[in-house]
Simulated assay, not measured.
Amino acid sequence: MTDDVLRVKNVTQRFGHGSNTMTALDDVSLDVRRGETLGLVGESGSGKSTLARAILLMRRPTAGTIEFDGGDITGLRGRALRNHRRRIQMVFQDPNDSLDPRFTIGRSVAEPLVAARMRPRERRLRVFESLEQVGISSDSVERFPHEFSGGQRQRIAIARAMAADPEFIVLDEPTSALDVSVQAQVLNLLVRLQEQTGVTYLFITHNLSVVHHVAHRVAVMHRGQVVEEGTGEQVMTAPEHPYTQGLLESMPVLYRT
């Protein structure tokens, strides 16, 4: 077992061909330590989501390697890939991307457990536990997503991600669509779940003020490259790269350190 649960090594991602080639990731390297939250910050188009898709093996990188728990996962296929995907879950910006409006929330939360071939009785108990864990009553399992508020739907999406007991969760702008007061509640929930389970987070956001409250370390992306890394305190109080300095200057005064 290694201290780094995830290692991204010199990953490049190109799209297109010939003169129409676009480089979305340019020789990106970063590590995520077991049990920590790494905040990945950058504006739209900086490469954050492309990197997340590479880590989830939704799109294989053009060059470079991705290691998980000490093993190279870049070329996984078939059963090995399916087994790996049970260890990594994702929470999207919009919970509707996780929750099918035609399914009850119980069925949605159970989906990763069905994929893992958990027995029905155990699966039902785990669904109840996961919902209770995020503050949603297990009595709600037969209700549908539209019956809940946006903040509650995001809690349900988090329960779905947590249900399979993953080692690593990619959080893609999980609070950006929520009101400020609800954002704080969801962020506090994520911190509490990490303390209880030891799960590792990659927290993707464009907002340094949000990631400062939850991240142990921060990596800043710009034009497909990681341009700065450090603890949240270091990046917030003594940014070195002009791009990071610009992000901080654009923050509301209320959030500045």
Rank of each mutant, 00 (worst) to 15 (best):
M1A: 14
L6Y: 12
R7I: 11
V11Q: 10
T12P: 13
G18P: 12
S19V: 13
N20H: 13
M22V: 15
D26A: 12
S29M: 10
R34F: 08
E36K: 13
L38S: 12
E43M: 10
A52P: 07
A54P: 00
L56T: 05
A63I: 07
A63K: 15
G64C: 03
G64V: 08
E67Y: 15
E67P: 00
D69M: 12
G70W: 06
G70K: 03
T74D: 08
T74L: 10
G75L: 09
R77P: 04
G78D: 07
R85E: 03
V91W: 01
F92K: 09
D97Y: 05
S98F: 00
R107D: 14
V109E: 00
R117K: 15
R119W: 04
R124G: 03
R126V: 04
F128K: 09
L131G: 02
V134K: 06
G135A: 10
S137R: 02
S137H: 05
S140G: 00
R143E: 12
P145G: 07
H146Y: 13
Q154W: 03
Q154C: 01
Q154F: 06
M162D: 02
A163V: 13
F168H: 03
I169T: 06
I169V: 15
V170H: 07
L171W: 04
E173F: 06
S176L: 12
S176Q: 08
A177P: 09
V180Y: 02
V180K: 09
S181N: 11
V186Y: 03
L187W: 00
L190T: 06
R192M: 04
Q194F: 01
E195T: 05
Q196F: 01
Q196P: 00
G198V: 11
V199I: 15
T200D: 09
Y201W: 02
T205Y: 01
T205M: 04
H206Y: 11
H206P: 03
V211Y: 01
H216Y: 11
V220H: 09
M221R: 07
R223W: 08
R223M: 10
Q225H: 14
V226E: 02
E228G: 10
E229Q: 14
G230L: 10
G232L: 04
G232V: 01
G232H: 00
E233S: 14
E233F: 00
E233H: 13
V235R: 01
V235T: 11
P242D: 14
Y243C: 06
T244E: 06
T244G: 10
T244A: 11
L248Y: 13
V253E: 14
